[in-house]
Design a protein around this nucleic acid. Structure first.
Length: 152
DNA sequence: GCCAACGTTGGC
DNA sequence: GCCAACGTTGGC
């Protein structure tokens, strides 16, 4: 079992949106970064646990837990000329972008803010708190996962 | 709204 | 293959 962190802007698609979806499940579309794509396509496995992170908001931080319920498959929004995620270079025969399906598990009892995470010496190796890291999907070690949950 | 950090693009 | 220009992310 692997652990992950996935960022989303609550104004666009927050954890409450996920919870409100049918089956509390949604496909995680729109990732247009190769490093993140490789994780979606190759590494995320059924049952993997995910921290749901809110970015670009008043209090950026981890707000809940989700899990992977479908492994990587082509991100069809790349094929749709009508959407902002359209990428003419992604060919349905040879898709460039991938996504997974994610299901809501629970809210944390409280938001664990980015600031709080940055203040934890145990988490200084976490990519999330390192300067300039803009990846929207990143792996979380089992140790960091437990440390973060212990803050709840 | 600003801007640092980073990724991508494309001319050469 | 280099690198300048440009676009995006995301904290503040």
């Amino acid at each position: 079992m692997n652990y992950w962190l996935m960022k989303s802007e609550p104004d666009v698609f927050g954890i409450d949106h996920l919870k409100a979806m049918p089956d509390q499940t949604e496909h995680w579309d729109g990732v247009r970064n190769y490093q993140a794509r490789n994780m979606l396509r190759d590494q995320m496995k059924l049952g993997d646990q995910v921290f749901f992170y809110h970015s670009n908001c008043d209090v950026p931080g981890i707000v809940g837990v989700a899990e992977i319920v479908r492994e990587g498959y082509p991100d069809f929004t790349a094929f749709d000329p009508g959407t902002k995620y359209h990428d003419p270079k992604s060919d349905p025969e040879k898709p460039r972008w991938y996504m997974v399906d994610v299901r809501y598990v629970r809210h944390l009892k409280r938001t664990i803010s980015l600031k709080e995470l940055k203040d934890m010496p145990e988490l200084e190796d976490m990519p999330l708190v390192r300067k300039g890291n803009r990846l929207s999907i990143m792996p979380v070690s089992a140790e960091h996962w437990e440390t973060i949950l212990s803050l709840e």
